[in-house]
Design a protein around this nucleic acid. Structure first.
Lengths: 210, 210
DNA sequence: CCCCTCATGACACTCCGTGCCATGATGCAA
DNA sequence: TTGCATCATGGCACGGAGTGTCATGAGGGG
């Protein structure tokens, strides 16, 4: 189930079925943000316009920022899965050279780009994130799972713990900036931005015996 | 005036002089955070313990996070000044090779480390930041001036606008992670952490004619 | 000595986020 | 069919962040 984000519970069969469509609610919220501005739109107002209660809104979106960031979750999830697979596949077939490691990180970033359902909606989300510092800051939390997976991936390939932390921080910072630059323009393909961003990374030499 | 942060206005001579010492207030807040936890300490409580009104507290510290991040301002300011000087000195004497540019970024980071008034207090601040996601996220805003200065510095040296953005993002991400790793340990000198972190950066080739 | 300036803080307000709990809808079992 | 367990919904109240407005008062300068 690739899109069970924001779903409060795993799809059980018992009990009353859900009637609220989180994607529709997020769509209403994004429209209101575009029309009236992010801060001038209250959760109360979003709930009312979506025809649900404020408490129900908070059940699907624990915070106001999740209405914007929630839609980016498939991207980081797809990207993280690639790193997870590359790691658990073992470093046996892994290329532990700098080029090989960078190729892994690049593949993950590109996989994220491929997981975007709607380019224009995603661009709208990112532009909103770019203009609200409180939303941009959230990248640190929103990308946390990605950070952890990248860290494990690098350490599996023999990178020291400290160096892995630095590479991850630089990796996430650069790719997020790539998304921001893509969103600011009109190009349809974000991949070239991601590739250029990855060009600022240098992978320290791995330990001889990982 | 190196430490007029959190001062509400430039030191005017007319009118009633200020009686509140922002550093003392921040000290009270940090102690309360350490004793009772960050979220369980309300602004109301901090104000009361500091012997001032809640509104006055907000005048000196616009947000709760500023009570923690405010003390880091001299660090980013000192670091930013080095980049500013290196830029306005002109690229005439600047080494536009990758090594030269990296040396500039490294000098800025080290200058920040040299600007720390009290290592143990700073370590306490950073540990608090590390354990509260909402505070760690703030790094994106707190380092914004540094980001802009680094961007101008790089562009002055012939780096393209897009590449400068990526290098800055990676630079800030890696150095912040370095501070986090230093704070998590017990070493007194943060410089080796910063130097290692800078090792994950690769500077794209500058334009032939900047 | 008066007045102008500015720090202080009381009051009220909006809004985010979170508990607690009543209500209602659904499917399952007796 | 009837009861029951399960879960979605949402009303109510609360703590707390952050912001306006305004009154007070304590300086210093004319």
């Amino acid at each position: 189930m690739p899109s069970d984000h924001t779903k409060p519970a795993g799809a059980r069969s018992a009990g009353r079925p859900a009637t609220i469509d989180p994607d529709a609610v997020a769509g209403v919220a994004l429209r209101l943000f575009a029309e009236n501005g992010y801060e001038r739109t209250s959760m109360e107002n979003i709930a009312r316009k979506a025809g649900i209660g404020r408490k129900s809104l908070y059940r699907y979106f624990p915070s106001k920022a999740d209405l914007v960031w929630g839609g980016m979750e498939p991207v980081v999830e797809a990207s993280g899965q690639v790193l997870e697979n590359a790691r658990t596949a073992g470093p046996a077939d892994g290329d532990t050279s700098e080029g090989g490691i960078l190729a892994g990180l690049r593949a993950a970033a590109i996989a994220g780009a491929s997981a975007i359902p709607d380019l224009s909606v995603t661009r709208g989300r990112l532009r909103l994130i770019a203009e609200r510092p409180e939303l941009a800051s959230r990248s640190y939390d929103a990308l946390a799972p990605q950070r952890e997976r990248a860290r494990l991936y690098l350490m599996e390939l023999g990178i020291s713990e400290s160096a892995a932390g630095y590479v991850c921080a630089a990796y996430l910072g650069a790719t997020f900036e790539a998304w921001m630059q893509w969103a600011a323009g009109t190009d349809s393909d974000p991949v070239p931005y991601l590739v250029e961003a990855l060009g600022v990374l240098r992978i320290p030499a791995a330990r001889p015996c990982g």
